[in-house]
């Protein structure tokens, strides 16, 4: 199970780490299982009151952040992000 979750989460663990994490996750999930003790269901109509739609931004053309600023925390080559080769 933890191996599957690690895969979903794009994380890797050594065999030794996996053992420790599995132990901790068992404890954490048994704490989470408390929510199974109550039989209620979610009503989506009650939610989403926190989104304020009556003041949406106008769809106007605006200056973007300059490319060099966007790339200032990345490996930058010719004003592009650099990734390993993805197409053979």
């Amino acid at each position: 199970m933890v191996k599957y979750l690690a895969q979903l989460s794009k994380l890797k663990f050594s065999e030794k780490e996996l053992e420790e994490v599995a132990k901790q996750m068992t404890g954490i999930i048994s704490l989470m299982d408390k929510v199974k003790e109550i039989d209620i269901s979610y009503d989506p109509l009650l939610d989403n009151k926190n989104i304020y739609l009556n003041d949406l931004r106008k769809d106007e053309k605006k200056e973007s952040m300059p490319t060099e600023k966007i790339l200032s925390n990345a490996v930058n080559s010719n004003n592009c992000f650099v990734v390993p080769k993805v197409v053979e």
């Binding site: 933890v2 979750l5 690690a6 979903l8 989460s9 994380l11 994490v21 996750m25 954490i28 999930i29 989470m32 929510v35 199974k36 109550i38 209620i40 269901s41 979610y42 009503d43 009650l46 939610d47």
Partner: peptide, 25 residues
């Protein structure tokens, strides 16, 4: 991150995440 993906993953979503939303209400 592992716990979050567990609660959201197929087969567990209703038992954990949807239930958590209901308890929030």
């Amino acid at each position: 991150i592992l716990l979050g993906n567990y609660a959201l993953s197929s087969g567990y979503y209703d038992a954990y995440y949807a239930k958590a939303l209901a308890i929030r209400q």
